[in-house]
Design a protein around this nucleic acid. Sequence first.
DNA 1: CTTAGCACTCACTTTCCCAGACTGCTAGCG
DNA 2: CGCTAGCAGTCTGGGAAAGTGAGTGCTAAG
Lengths: 356, 356
Amino acid sequence: MPESLPRGPELDKRKAYILTTIVYEYIATAEPVGSATLTQKYNLGVSSATIRNEMAELEARGYLVQPHTSAGRVPSDTGYRTYVDRLMPTESLASEESDRLRIEFARAGRAIDEIVEQATRLLSQYSQNLAVVVAPSRDRQTFRHLQLIWLADRSVLMVAVTTAGVAEQHVIEPLVDVDPDELTRASNALNRSLSGKLLAELDRAAVADALAETEPPLHASLIDGIIAGFAHARRPEERRILFGGAQHLLDQPEFRDFKKLRSILDLVEEQRTLYNVVLDSIERGESTPSVRIGGELELEDVSECSLVAIPYRMGDRSLGVLAILGARRMPYGRMMALIAATADNLSQHLTDVELP
Amino acid sequence: MPESLPRGPELDKRKAYILTTIVYEYIATAEPVGSATLTQKYNLGVSSATIRNEMAELEARGYLVQPHTSAGRVPSDTGYRTYVDRLMPTESLASEESDRLRIEFARAGRAIDEIVEQATRLLSQYSQNLAVVVAPSRDRQTFRHLQLIWLADRSVLMVAVTTAGVAEQHVIEPLVDVDPDELTRASNALNRSLSGKLLAELDRAAVADALAETEPPLHASLIDGIIAGFAHARRPEERRILFGGAQHLLDQPEFRDFKKLRSILDLVEEQRTLYNVVLDSIERGESTPSVRIGGELELEDVSECSLVAIPYRMGDRSLGVLAILGARRMPYGRMMALIAATADNLSQHLTDVELP
DNA sequence: CTTAGCACTCACTTTCCCAGACTGCTAGCG
DNA sequence: CGCTAGCAGTCTGGGAAAGTGAGTGCTAAG
């Protein structure tokens, strides 16, 4: 075991520049970068031999990796991480591109699902990578209106509307006949006391409280049905994940290998794992893109991938997450600018269509 | 140009058996089938030389193809077609498997979306192929209930419920203030005259008729809003397509070629084309699986694929289509049995959860 | 009509070899 | 003391050459 060399901030200016250039070049070409390439294509002012010495040290310090003895160097997770955190210039979208994005966004209608689907499509299209989108959480939505609809003597349809639109319909089958007037009274009572609360708050106690003073009292089986309906509407564990643009993976040379491709597609199919990783990527309240590189994902078989994620909002509530999953060798600056712009557009649209 | 040889039903018993065996063997092994393999593995009672003569004739008649001079034979589109239509034994699922399918179906809840998603998942899982599902059409659903909900003075939420659940919510912004009572009267009038009709029938005239006798008359802008709401709910052109199990394609040797894989994934992404093909596959009223083999799909770049499709129902209305897209070399008998069973389960469940 | 035998074809695999791309090291220079 | 030119060494990837084997079509005889 060689003595561990210092890591971290002590990269002198030249080493930093060399690392930057290698990451840049490798992202562009997908080929390991050699010392000669660097001196030829970039103005370094020193010979390739000097670069070789520097590269050897960068490798010893863990920023670079050599695929095999007679190849150039490739950035390691640490190399990319340093690049992303400290070396990379901040990019923003060309105004033309950001205009186009905004216009295409406007094409989606006013339905939440449609808007989120459009976001997925656009994100994958513009990023040329796999887009992963966690659909709006239900329990963070604000309850707006309840309607109990009489279907038959022992059959009631409960429709719960949040400010994001209809969240839930649920058939209740009470043990006694109910009549429409009774249902109207119950609906009104619930609307009066619960309107404006988060779905997450509408538990058994809240519903029972709201209905406590109804005269004549509702039958317990109907109340239970309403409670079950809210519980079902809330269920935070089952959130849909949308995907788009899997075919772009085929364009990356790193996925010209069926095993790697397979592990990504399996991940997509499984959903659960990816769901957790995407949520993990978002620190509470952070509204800048979070980046996880290669091994940082802590997923087997996808150490060749990176994930860029950012939350989106409706009003001031964070509802879900956008993410880009792609080769570790991705243009991080562009991806971060793109996903931030997409999240902005999405949040803006969702906020616009929120019910009063 | 050689004189064209007779096609069609004149395959004698032995030729039919040889063709059957070749298709069977090729489906199992994915390797071109040679005369020696046939005599060794199957009891044909004649020598390989005889088989060679027969195979040469089957090829001349268009049932078989030889990938190259020194290889065995592979079925052509015609070969598969003959196999599927006239030679293949009808399969049905093992009762154990069909039980398992039924049980897993029951795990989905009572929401239409959930049920259809579960069908997609199960179909891809059991078929080990790409499942393509056209989500329930809206305009074939039966209108059950309308609710106009007062949100603010010039803002009304319209919720349309079909027997399949909530079909549409739509914000109407009338040009005058409205009050809740007015909305209740309008809701009642619409429910009285329109309940039980198909969404497709709820056009401008139907709505105007239903509201004709309301006193005092509703403001035109509100009526227009309601009409627009129904129109939006109907829109038959925008039907969601669900996919599942793309990763299974990677298991087929015929897709160990990035170009072919790419064309299929592109097809998935595009949706429109696939949507048309899948719908085309279903003759009106047919309730047996339809099969389209290779070139019969009339799609470039996917001549290596076949599609098996079948409609599903809610009650007696056909709502959408299930399909399996896979390699042309697929076990047709099993796929047909499987998709029929899946469609049965799906139709059954949808019918069960239909509102009274 | 069937079959044994045979010559022929052609894809696939293995082996081998070479060119090329890099590196690390050393020794000399400013 | 850092920088550089030069050189030897290493490894990959591609391409040619050669051998292997599966499979065919044809012929002639049963």
